[in-house]
Structure formats: C-alpha cells, structure tokens
Nucleic acid binder design. Structure first.
Lengths: 192, 192
DNA sequence: CTCGGTTGTCTAGCGGTGCTAGCATCGGGT
DNA sequence: ACCCGATGCTAGCACCGCTAGACAACCGAG
C-alpha cells in the first residue's frame, strides 16, 4: 500500500505545482501568456501530463480561482476581525476586498473574469466560493437594514465592490479617488 | 475627384459591414466565434482585407465598443427624459443600463470586458465613451449630495451597476431579485 | 531473479488561431 | 491604348489547445 500512497502524494504534489506555476505565470505576464506549452515547460513535464490532472486549460484556471477564493475569504475575515464596530468592519471589508483584487489581479481574473468552468450560486458551487460569500455575509448581513434580505444586500454590496475592482484595474476608473469611493459605498449603502 | 469619393464611400461602407458583422456574430455565437477567417467569409472578402481597415482583431472589438457606447448613451438619455423627478430618473437610468447590458451582452463585453485597445478616463479617450459617461453624469450628478464630487459619485454608481451587470450575466448573481437590487442601489446611494 | 503487464510519460501531429509577404489583376490617368 | 499604382488574393508563418499512439519504467507474481 505504501507505494501507492507515495505515488498519490507525488501526484498531488505535482498538481499543486501546476496550479502554482499557472498562477505565477499569469501574475507575471498575464493569462494570455499561460499556454499549455509554456506551462508544461515550466513544470518540466510534457503537455499531456497537464491533461492527466485537468480536463483542459479552463479547469486549471478554475483551480487557481478556488485557491483565490480561499485566500480572499481568509483576508476578509482577518481584516474584519481586528475592526471595532459595524462601520469599521464594513470599511475594513471593502478595503480588504479591493486590496486583494489589486494585489492579485490574475487570481481575481480567474475567479470572476475568465471562464474557469465554475458554477456560482448553485447547489454544485464549490465550497470555497460559498465560503468566500459567507465571509462577506458575516459582516454585511448585520448592516442590511430592516426589511432587506441580508443575502440580497450582500450581493448588491459585493457587486459594487466587484465593479470598482474591475473598472479600476482596467483603467476605467482613475485610482486617485479610491478612498472617497470606498467611503461613499460604506456610508451610503450600509445602514449603521 | 468623383471616382475617389465613390471609392472612399464604398470603403467606409465596407468598414461598417465589418463592424456590424463582427457584432452580429458575437451576439449570436459569442466573441470566441468571431475569428478573422469566419468574419472574412461572412463579409465575402479574404482575411487581409480586414487588416486594411483595422490593425487587428482588437481594433475591431474596439469599433464595436464605440458603437455600443453611442447606443448606450442614447438609451440612457431616452430613459431619463421621460421620467419625472430625481428618484424616477435615477431608477430609470439604472434600469436602462442593466437592460442594455442584458440585451447586448456581446457589445457590453466589447466595451468593458474585452480588450478593445481603448483608453479610458484620459485625454485620448474617444468621444463616444466620454459622452456615455456624460449621460450618466447628467442624471447622477444632481443626486450626489452635499460635499460629494459629482464625478466621483457617478463613478461609484456606475461601478455598482457594472458589477451587477457582469455578475448577473456570468451567472454569479441569481436573476430573481434584480428589482430589489436596483431599488436598494437607487434608494441608498442616491441622496434624494 | 526474471518475466509480464500495468502505469506513466513522451513524441508527433491535428485542426484551429491571428497575422503577413508577395503575387496577380483590375481599373483610372495620361 | 497603354502603363502603373491601388487593391484583393493565395499561401504560409508561428503559435494555440488538445490527443493518438509509441515507448519506457516500474511493480508484483512465480
């Protein structure tokens, strides 16, 4: 049995290597540069090896996205944990979200911009994505206000953050008023 | 001179044909299906003809995006013109924006999701894009509230709409609570 | 220790992509 | 009527995602 276990371990190791390499390459040179050939060369295996781990490129993107979701959830919880009061928590959440998107553009793209073949808001939605949404809900649910469904409120707030994240990074929003934009969002949308 | 004028006219006509064909193909089968070969076949010319009009595929996407910006601006102005009072105008604007994104997904992608090689929020920003933003500003500027820069407020509201548009269409937001989400955005963000 | 079979990896190649060099042909100006 | 430049074509480049089939390496049985 031990032999099989070792092989399985090595295989899992290599799978992590593939995902990490894809992520690094995307972060360095953009997702366009992440081709199966380049990726194979970086991990020092031939192309078909990739297809013994993933169905195709989209599934590799999906794996990066799931990693990102885990990290995003952790970043949001870490930021809100050290903030006192609802106002500070929501502000810290918004900050952490936008910071994450700015610091990990390729991962953020994998999660929300590219097609990673992931299902959202469904039964089959992967646990990592549900948990990231849960992290938002924990803080935002308590400032939704009377008669407003916490889930719907969280979706609206999230969409607003997502819009700012994507438009900022795509050069559609000038970065200098970022603070004002976040304050506006927090002060107006959240009922404190 | 008349000969040259005729040729110039025919050339402009063909350029419109290229853009319209690209847009139609993208709307029917998605941007992935818009390849230079297929596009050339549809307009009944060979591939290199495309490159005598545009530098490459990205510039074709950009041309579709500019068309879209013009239409979006018109749709927004048409919607707000028939609404009475600030509240109704903002609500109509939000509705029109999300409706446009839902009705023209490929065009919306060309404008904000894909790389059309367009500059935003700069000197060199094409007139159509500036005007679309201006259409937003006309309605949103008057509900920004005291001490809030109208431009910054418009950016925030726009980003929120953009977030909802993209997340909804990508299946990240369930469509059933769309009305509630729009109401939330209008009632809270705008100071009426 | 040897052998058979499974498991794993690689080489090579398919059909597609965006884009371009170079030739042919067509038509306007003299 | 002829020349010549503009214009559109054929053919091909390098690259893409993905896969079939050959080959090697290794494990377990005798």
């Amino acid at each position: 049995m031990s032999v099989q276990e070792r092989k399985q371990r090595e295989r899992a190791e290599r799978e992590r290597l593939i995902v990490a390499t894809a992520r690094g390459l995307a972060e360095q040179q953009g997702w366009d540069a992440v081709t199966t050939r380049r990726l194979a060369e970086r991990i020092e295996y031939s192309q078909p090896v990739l297809y013994s781990h993933f169905r195709g490129k989209r599934e590799i993107i999906g794996a990066v996205a799931l990693d990102g979701a885990t990290e995003l959830a952790a970043a949001l919880r870490a930021a809100t944990a050290v903030a006192d009061g609802p106002r500070a928590r929501v502000a810290a959440l918004a900050r952490a979200y936008l910071d994450f998107a700015a610091a990990n553009p390729a991962v953020y793209d994998a999660m929300f911009q590219l097609d990673g073949g992931l299902a959202f808001a469904q039964e089959s939605t992967p646990e990592q994505l549900k948990d990231a949404f849960a992290a938002l809900l924990e803080t935002l649910g308590e400032v939704a206000g009377e008669g407003v469904h916490p889930g719907v409120f969280t979706e609206v707030f999230w969409a607003s953050l997502h819009g700012q994240a994507t438009l900022t990074r795509a050069g559609r929003l000038p970065p200098e008023y970022l603070d004002q934009r976040v304050d506006l969002l927090v002060d107006r949308l959240a009922l404190l």
